[in-house]
Amino acid sequence: MVSRVDVPKGGFNFDNYQRNLILQEKGFSLPKPTKTGTTIVGTKFKNGVVLGADTRATGDTTVMDKNCFKIHYLAPNIYGCGAGTAADTDKITKMVASQLELHRLATGRESRVATALTALTQFLFRYQGHLGAALVLGGVDVDGPHLFSVSPHGSTDKLPYLCQGSGSLAAISIFESQWRENMERDEAIELVKEAIKAGIFNDMGSGSSVDVAVIEKGRAEVCRGMEVPYPTIQKVDSYKFKPGTTAILSESFRNFVTITEGDAMDIS
C-alpha cells in the first residue's frame, strides 16, 4: 500500500518548456496570457502615499474584465499596484504577502516597505524577466512613507511620484505638470485620479473606473471605484426573450427518490 504522497515543492514548473518550444516551431503557438494594458500610479504626499489604478483587463483588443482589481494587498500598511501579465502580478504579490505575514508573526513587528521591495526584486531577478510583473509599491512604516517601482527584470526606482503600464505616458504628463511637494491628502487623491483618467481616456489598454488606495501612518484605505468617469450608456431597447422562444421538442421526467409507504411509526 502506498502511504507516502508526493507533495509538489511549490514554485514554477518548467517541465513542458522544451516541448512547447518544439510545438511552437511546428506552428502551434502558446496560449497568450492576459496582459493587462494598464495605468497604475503612485505618489507621496505630506503624511503618506496614494496609489491608483484603472480597472480594465485586456486580452489582445478585447476587454476581458471591465472591473478588475489591480491594487494588491501586501501587508496592512503596504499595497502594490500591478501591471503586465495579470497571472504573474497576482501570484507574486500573494507570495510576498504571505512571506511578510509570516515575518510579522515571527518578529512581532510591522512590515517594512523595504522588506517587500527586497523580496519582490530578488524574486523577479531570479526569473530574469520571464515573469512579466511591473509594480508600483507603496506603504508607510517606522521610517515613514515610501514609494518604489519594480520592473520585470528586478530593477527598482525610488521616486516621489511614478507611473507604470501602457498608460504611464499619459499619466506621467499629469504628474510632471501638476505635482507639488508636501500635498494634502485630498490634493494627492485628486491628482492620482486625474492621472488615472488620463490613462483611461488616452490609452486604449486602460479603461473603466479609478481604484485608489491611501496609506497613512496606522491607517490604510482602499477605495474600489472611487471615480467612474464614464457611466454605462443605457440601451435603447430591451432584448429579453419571451417565454416559449426556445422550443420544447420532447419532455421526460424521472424520479430520483422512490417513496415507499411503510407502517406507521409506533408513537405510543
Binding site: T121, L124, S155
Partner: peptide
C-alpha cells in the same frame, strides 16, 4: 548597463 543586473 542593465539597471536590474547592476542593482543586484
Amino acid at each position: 548597463g542593465s539597471a536590474a543586473d547592476t542593482q543586484a
